[in-house]
Design a protein around this nucleic acid. Structure first.
Lengths: 150, 150
DNA sequence: ATTAAAATGAAAATCGTTATTAATTAACCC
DNA sequence: GGGTTAATTAATAACGATTTTCATTTTAAT
């Protein structure tokens, strides 16, 4: 499982094609446009968001909501996108083509600011160890009111 | 908004009655039993879990799943219970009558271990501040494999 | 006790997501 | 390039969790 961090779109596309081939899956225009759209929009999308954007940007493309769900799952399984669960707002996806980070979320305007903190990452490992857990993953979301909404 | 941490059941019940009165809501046996059950079971419940347990423990009580959903929402709005969103497993509720803590969750058996770490809490405030946010809340879940499942 | 407002259970509706299906398309072979 | 086969698709049905609707019951204040 290679990291895709900082790949160019061309490299990312090649990586995706490799994964498809290895799994005897096919490269389709729907899959390409989903990847392309995620690459060029670093925001966080729900499946519905992404579906609506693609419908709007590519009116000639035939695409169904089920395909968006299927493709996002496929991309997530292969670590090309990652997701966060935002309670009432549902699951949001973002391209994994950036370093690990957590999220600072505005409760008023839903803006998401990404951050990274090594000290917390270390503490998380220590805590898990104390509890007898092997840490495999974590979720950290800081909710608040952003500067513009205060 | 007072903290209910460490209240006795009697005090908690009085607090709940106050909240109801202030909002012109009524005190019912269903609401009382839901609160009582949460108080005496510090585990994490889905709405369905709680509904099943109450049906079993109080067969003479008429209660519907919709009432459980309604009451848990009401209790959460008033900070008497808190909830965590566990991705595929759905939303789980616990009584808020205990000090703040986060959750260490086993991906195999779904066991939840609670922990508290002041250092992380402090860092979270620092990070939010750096991002221009006023921190109102946070979510931290550490996923891993527990000792028994390793 | 009377009465008005709120709460209830049961069932229907809704929401986000997944599975089914028949038609289409990509990939491989010649 | 055309033929073949398996994968993919869009549309729609199905699904599970949650919410709403509504007619009936219960609470709380008089």
């Amino acid at each position: 499982m290679n990291s895709i961090v900082s790949l160019s779109y061309k490299e990312l596309l090649a990586e995706f094609k490799n994964i498809l081939k290895q799994n005897q899956l096919k490269f389709t225009s729907q899959r390409e446009i989903i990847l392309y759209t995620l690459y060029n929009n670093t925001q966080h999308f729900t499946s519905e968001d992404l579906y609506m954007l693609i419908k709007q940007e590519y009116p000639e493309l035939s695409i169904g909501i089920a395909t968006v769900y299927r493709t996002l799952s496929l991309l997530e399984e292969n670590n090309i996108v990652s997701s966060i669960s935002l309670g009432i707002q549902g699951k949001k996806y973002e391209i994994a083509n950036k370093p690990h980070h957590d999220h600072n979320i505005c409760e008023t305007c839903n803006k998401i600011v990404e951050f990274e903190n090594d000290e917390i990452e270390e503490l998380q490992h220590t805590i898990a160890k104390e509890n007898g857990f092997i840490l495999t993953n974590h979720l950290m979301q800081l909710y608040g009111i952003c500067k513009e909404c205060q």
